[in-house]
Write a protein that binds this DNA or RNA. Structure first.
Lengths: 248, 248
DNA sequence: CTCCGTTCGAGACAACCGTCACACCGGAGC
DNA sequence: GCTCCGGTGTGACGGTTGTCTCGAACGGAG
């Protein structure tokens, strides 16, 4: 989790413009508006582990993930992390504090080498005032976040580690899995440590939970990070709220 | 938690109008707009324990708490509840699903006898389209929710019950406490059961945590629901993220 | 005042999980 | 081949907490 590459400005504004087209937040704009917007943006590439901002900092502006992945999380003084959500290409990060003027409610870090479009706060405010449609898009984004966080809270409150893992894996399989004759196969691009932060638990507990799911036959580890899920529906059932996946 | 009074329509539209004035969501409207709005609203009074909506239901409209208190929560199949937030007079409930068209992400119930203003979905949409200021106010509300939920998630992930309780009590004391010579005194209007749902734990654990805080001397129970906090700052410290309030 | 449902405290128990410690594996680099 | 070293599995241990059970205390209704 160390900084591999320092952020360096990139001159290619053209890329930014075509990128903005594919972002829901700015999809309704015409070409001219997007061109003006693109001129305001700064594109930077950061290596894995670059901290964009931390909890409590005043908000500097809006980030949009062009490529790579950004993890938004909270840290406890003892060093444990709880991942709130991760955002991939085309997704905005930290749009909330832009509106209410408050500090960042969480921290953000690049999980892999990532290209990020940065829009300074002042420019975003101007954009937002002269273009009311943005508001609706922002509400939609905030809504998604809210729904997601409701589920995170419920997960932490009700479900044991195995159930959380089952839930995570089944969602992952539905989104990124590839169908084979024997079932759905997924390639986990996370270490146990990263998984544990996402699930709000410890590294070792993830190992144990994986083992238990394997003993039950709902998953099978093919290689170091390749997992076969014979029946995704069955796995999803184990992850249902309130279910205890362990010990039958 | 049983229904005491069925909801009955109330004819007094005058009340509604003056109520709307004090709601941030509609504060920017002029009197005429508010009058039109008030005409669309339905005011109902429900007894304690009346379920307004449950998780997954399609959204019917916006609720605003006129008096009383509404609890928003998720339920596990085993019957446990996790309170996400509670809303009092002047606060809107369930504005989120109005925008993205999705179902209610949680359930809501009146904690005490409450008067609720209900604005049907179609009317709210019309209002929202012709009045962009509403959007900004909604974003502000969603922002508050989001920040709150981030803290709920962190709390559940990192802190033990005693720390969560300490955090809750110190916040409660700062908001509703009355200063005395011996410290801050609070009157808890919740049962242990309700507290446990708010803190994401069991009734018995709340009792244990209260006892431990009392043994440490940071709180002192005066009567059934009256608690004296000699030093609120010290209590707050115990509730800080990552702190383990138990066993020093 | 008595009755009775609600609320509360307390003890016992097992499950779950975080932590520590240690061994192992596999790839990168020499 | 070799050594590192990050990632991983496993066992042990203790603390926290959910659950069960019981009895006591409270408070409103009659």
């Amino acid at each position: 989790m160390t900084v591999v590459t320092r952020g360096v400005p990139q001159p290619h504004a053209m890329d930014t413009r075509s990128l903005l087209e594919r972002i829901p937040l700015f999809a309704r704009f015409d070409d001219e508006a997007r061109a003006r917007l693109a001129a305001r943006c700064l594109t930077r590439t950061h290596g894995a582990g670059h901290v964009l901002f931390t909890t409590g900092e005043p908000c500097r502006g809006l980030y949009i993930v062009a490529s790579g992945r950004v993890r938004i999380y909270r840290t406890s003084p003892t060093g444990r992390e709880q991942v709130l959500h991760t955002e991939g290409p085309g997704r905005p990060v930290a749009e909330l504090p832009l509106f209410d003027g408050g500090p960042y409610p969480a921290s953000a870090v690049t999980e892999v080498q990532s290209r990020l479009v940065f829009l300074p706060r002042a420019d975003f405010e101007a954009l937002y005032r002269e273009n009311p449609d943005v508001a609706e898009e922002v509400i939609r984004e905030l809504g998604k976040r809210l729904r997601h966080l409701v589920r995170v809270a419920e997960t932490l409150a009700f479900r044991d580690v195995a159930a959380r893992l089952a839930s995570f894996l089944s969602e992952y399989a539905e989104q990124y899995g590839t169908e084979t004759a024997a079932g759905t196969e997924i390639v986990l691009d996370r270490t146990r440590e990263e998984l544990s932060q996402e699930l709000g638990t410890a590294r070792e507990s993830v190992s144990r939970a994986l083992k238990q799911l394997a003993q039950k036959g709902v998953i099978r580890t093919l290689a170091r990070r390749r997992i076969l899920i014979p029946d995704v529906t069955r796995l999803r059932t184990l992850g249902r709220p309130g279910e205890r996946a362990r010990y039958e």
